[in-house]
Write a protein that binds this DNA or RNA. Sequence first.
DNA 1: ATCCCGAGGG
DNA 2: CCCTCTGGAT
Length: 219
Amino acid sequence: MTRAEVHAFIDALATRNPAPETELSFADPFTLLVAVVLSAQATDVSVNRATETLFQVAPTPKAMIALGVDGVASHIRSIGLWQTKAKNVVQLARDLEDKHGGQVPPDRESLEALPGVGRKTANVVLNVAFGEATMAVDTHIFRIGNRTGLAPGMTPREVEDGLLKRISPARLRDSHHWLILHGRYVCKARRPECWRCVAAAPCRYRDKTPSPQPELQAT
DNA sequence: ATCCCGAGGG
DNA sequence: CCCTCTGGAT
């Protein structure tokens, strides 16, 4: 896909989806970072519910350390991987205090050295909290990238680089939002609903999936 | 049953 | 590359 095609695709997605950007609206870098760490393999609803009470008690690294692993765990048991995440979040807070003056470091290396923070999470924080031009490739964006033939057989890193070159920095933020929504509800891992897809560019799945009329899909 | 707005470890 | 961690959604 060319740069123009990618932009046209995202514009089409934005036009089709009236849903406003409401996620990841955490004001400060610390709560943003923790929220993203907790969101791995979990639904945004359950994470929002957990973080609401968690950040009320522990909105800072010091408070998170004081709360402790068991304390954090008590707030996040409704989401998956909570044991690992509780340990990671407290250790992460300790690392911030010990190595970064209690602040979230604004560079990739320091971020990825934190427990529970991989490339995807680091890219989200770098973009949302520090305004850097990064692309956070999750499973949805990875899948879309491969299907649309941005380059078949790409690694997540190659999808990241490809999209980064084809999306203007000013559009990176909302592009994530539209692409992820598209991957969640239309370009799904299983039973993708291609008849609802607005992609104009070539896609390996285009016209290869059954196109039942939505009206006829009872139950 | 299978996947998820992943990361870490082998 | 593979596997594991885990509750929730479909």
